[in-house]
């Protein structure tokens, strides 16, 4: 771990300004991902601005009937919130499908959205990785890529975004609220928050400016329906998704669906959702048009279809 300086900011604006004016500075929230990466010197911040005193740990109703989730609300707290469990069940289910109890107690809402990839080439400094060392190449593209993206990646990076929570946020049309160094606020739709790697270096990751701090994630008013989060993995717990499906399905069979484990961001194609009443294959044919799987992970395409079919079958069974 590289030596670094540390401060605890008092307001979001101060925190943003502190990170913006210090080259190499980063925010520290739960630290479940950042500290691991610092130990491996994959992250080497010179200065950490701790956001725990910013009072961003509340979940409050919004004027238009939604919920505003403070950036520092822990995954455990969010998943257990009665309003979330009642009105946004897909979110609770996604959160508890991820990590472990200990990690969820510490991990925060904003931190979850800002997770780095779990690609093994990213984690081994001897290996090429454009995300860790732009220009070194993508180790996974021609290597071990069973857990990687089948769509949205490029030859520069085919990592998969590891979050479960974010997939549910995407299906709920959440909005990421930020404060910038100059004190101005911004709202970023979750659809735009994670950037695809693209065809130029450095590979894209998050739609944040230097020093821009997430202060909240806002959920629109509840949309009803039955909520599902199906996570498919090699072991029953404590593993990243091979494929996950976050879905909200209405009584008439219409609904929304987003996929995890398949792309560098939560993968949702709104236009494909119209096909939900026709069944899973019709949805995934549209949602994964243009997919470019690698040899190790081509199974994710049929798996996504089958996982969605399982969700649709459950929805039908519950509605009957």
């Amino acid at each position: 771990m590289k030596s670094f300086t540390y401060e605890r900011a008092k307001t979001p604006r101060d925190a943003a300004a502190a990170v913006a004016r210090t080259p190499g500075a980063k925010f520290l929230a739960g630290g479940t991902n950042l500290l691991d990466l610092m130990k491996l010197e994959i992250e080497t911040p010179t200065h950490l601005v701790d956001v725990q005193d910013l009072k961003l740990d509340r979940i409050e109703p919004t004027r238009d009937g939604g919920l505003r989730i403070g950036a520092f609300v822990t995954n455990t707290h969010l998943a257990a919130d009665e309003r979330v469990r009642r009105d946004y069940g897909v979110l609770t289910r996604a959160i508890v499908a991820g990590a472990s109890g200990q990690l969820r107690n510490k991990a925060t809402t904003a931190g979850n959205l800002l997770q780095r990839t779990r690609c093994p080439y990213f984690y081994d400094p001897n290996m090429p990785c454009n995300k860790r060392k732009p220009g070194s190449g993508c180790g996974a593209f021609g290597g071990f890529n069973r857990n990687h993206s089948v769509i949205g990646g490029s030859s520069l990076c085919i990592c998969a975004f590891p979050s479960d929570m974010a997939v549910a946020m995407r299906v709920l049309d959440a909005t990421v609220e930020t404060v910038r160094a100059d004190g101005s606020a911004r709202s970023i739709p979750i659809a735009d928050f994670h950037r695809l790697p693209g065809s130029q270096l450095p590979v894209g990751e998050f739609a944040l400016e230097p020093g821009e701090l997430i202060v909240a994630v806002t959920l629109p008013k509840p949309i009803g329906g039955r909520h599902f989060y199906q996570k498919v993995r090699d072991r029953s717990s404590y593993a990243f998704a091979l494929v996950s499906v976050a879905a909200v399905i209405q009584r008439d069979g219409t609904g929304r669906v987003a996929f995890g484990g398949v792309a560098p961001k939560p993968w949702r194609v709104e236009a494909a959702e119209a096909a939900l009443p026709q069944g899973a294959a019709a949805v995934t044919a549209a949602a994964f048009a243009g997919a470019a799987p690698r040899p190790d992970n081509a199974f994710k395409l049929p798996l996504a279809t089958r996982a969605l079919a399982s969700v649709i079958a459950q929805a039908k069974a519950e509605a009957a």
């Binding site: 093994p120 290597g143 072991r235 990243f240």
Partner: peptide, 16 residues
Amino acid sequence: FINHDLAGYEVPVHAD
């Protein structure tokens, strides 16, 4: 062996 940690090399958990 590229999956050289316990996140990449999965062993059974209690739930299995």
